[in-house]
Design a protein around this nucleic acid. Structure first.
Lengths: 200, 200, 200, 200
DNA sequence: TATGAATGAGTGTTCATTCAT
DNA sequence: TATGAATGAACACTCATTCAT
């Protein structure tokens, strides 16, 4: 059925994401994808006209889902600080709940793949833009003290990414509890941007 | 002479680091390394018994240098906060001044290379241990308020790594000035860990 | 309708001839033919049971058309020498006016394609037979002096083919005018077979 | 020995020429060449950096040998007409004695292979230039009557090529004796260019 | 009549590695 | 210490063809 048709395309995407996540970009080969889902490598070309096309599709979809997750998370709360924290939380949650999709976004060296169309990366910016505007709001409300909201947005995102990638790459000391590490890190990152009012 | 012998080994390491940095792990081939330094690919096997061994060595040495840089930086100042900031600064400086060596430490997926012996990663811990002890001191001196110094140390390191890798992977918006981004990010990260005394 | 049916078959033949002419035998692929005429590759198999069959058909039809063109040309004039020249002229004209069809006849190595059935090449002989009989007549009329009319017929044809294929394969010096080359070559070839009466 | 080293390169060239001659350009694959001489396909890359390089080398060498053969043949005789005939004879002899080398020169579509460097085709012109100058001499000596010596040279060459390629492609009627066909054809071609003095 | 799905064989090429010298 | 020769495995991709619909 038409159900089955689209199913193979999805299986390919899923298997690819899986290989990408567990073995890395360089280990991603048409043969391996095919083998993983019990299909000839050739068949993949029925759905994606090249390896690049396949990889681009995967990135694009992941980027889109991340953007959506962030927007959705931000939409659930009101209040500047609450939105600020919700965005951060949504970002981290997406990374934790959809590791294959999250990893794919960052794992790939821009020059390793046939140049990923620049404009597709623009899409990824929706999250930052939202975060930036919330920060701008926070400054107006005197809840944050910052030089440059855009830099701040990128900085937060970079710090979060650092936290997550350390976890995924298993570089943590084995005595450290992952969840605790993440929670405390988020807290510190957030603290780094808020004006703390002393509770005298 | 034995001078020349070790010299070739060094040339191999240097060329490899260079390729690793500019082209990525997958582009690292014995042939290319050989060509770059005017030596047959086979000759590399006289110094490294496999590609994995070569890469492991590179990582190991880079890790060692990073540790040394941090220790040296910390040794130049006195005072807890000063040491705290010196460690962070040394880490970032190493990353900025020796990009090939820094990148090599993180760029490589733990499984992309024939499993990098776990115990070699231990060495990387010297930096954290130092940072951790400084943080512990900071807590005692009431300059920091923290749950777990080890987690804090790893968290700082992860955040810094996030900042640096974003810069290296050129994911910043083109309107952002790199230096400013780094400086402000460091400031925020540090602020996230210090107790701020209100200027009443 | 049956009108449409034969139409698709013709489209396939035309597209194939076109690819064959412009890109060569190796570039002829079922997929490409299909794409060129907006039809699936599979559909071609409804009309031709294999790529070989398709190619054989193309050759066969071209050979038939060439034979017809020669017979028609010879039929338009009377007189032995006139017929002789008309045959040669018709051959060359066909080659120049229907390059795809002409080329196809010779371009394909007898073994590159699944052995082209020998008996199909017989058809190609109608032209030679005609030329041969005209030559025989010419000898009787003392206009030609020849050992073996069959050999002469094949020789003329081979020489003409040489002239044409050199032009088609663009091996001429760029300073040479193609038309002049062809005209003068024909003249020389004809001269090579006629008895020249001295103009005392 | 060093004898063996160069020997493999030669074997590759020979095997390639052989495949080219018997199966055609499209059938030439690195794997097939390797199999033919009992060597892995990979090994060919030790001597030729690409398939194109290999094919170019083959063409180049064949072209050079043909030029040499013609020059040598022309050098053995004196007298314009004798030289004229010697050139033609040398050309045909080369084609008959070294069929693989001869075929290779003409078999390959200029666009099928990675564009064969134009200047290498210049080399092929040495033969024509020589023929052209002999024809020019013949005109001066009133032994030939021609419009354009360059066109004449190319025309002769094209006619000869037609004769030879017909033989090689086995398009002759089976009742025709090949040697006789060639001899008589040459004679006619030559006659087409000479001024015949009537034996009154 | 026409198609989309699927595949095994084949293409040129690169790679890490071994071995004899 | 250093190398050139050699190779099997892998890569992305194309092809003619079959099959079920």
């Amino acid at each position: 059925m038409s159900n089955n048709q689209s199913s193979l395309r999805d299986k390919i995407l899923e298997a690819s994401r899986n290989v990408l996540f567990t073995k890395g970009y360089d280990a991603l080969s048409m043969r391996k994808i095919g083998k993983e889902i019990g299909v000839s490598a050739t068949s993949i070309y029925l759905y994606f006209k090249s390896k690049d096309h396949l990889v681009h599709t995967i990135i694009e979809e992941s980027v889109e889902e991340l953007s959506e997750a962030i927007e959705k998370g931000a939409g659930l709360v009101t209040g500047t600080i609450a939105k600020f924290e919700a965005i951060i939380r949504s970002y981290v949650d997406f990374a934790l709940e959809q590791p294959e999709k999250y990893q794919v976004i960052y794992m790939i060296r821009s020059d390793a793949m046939g140049r990923y169309p620049k404009d597709k990366f623009r899409k990824a910016r929706r999250g930052y833009t939202l975060l930036e505007s919330v920060i701008r709001q926070g400054i107006e409300e005197k809840a944050m003290e910052l030089d440059d909201p855009m830099i701040a947005a990128y900085s937060i995102w970079a710090q979060l990414h650092g936290i997550i990638s350390v976890v995924y790459n298993q570089r943590l000391d084995s005595r450290i509890d992952q969840d605790k590490f993440i929670e405390e890190s988020i807290e510190h990152i957030v603290q780094g941007f808020l004006i703390r009012t002393t509770t005298t």
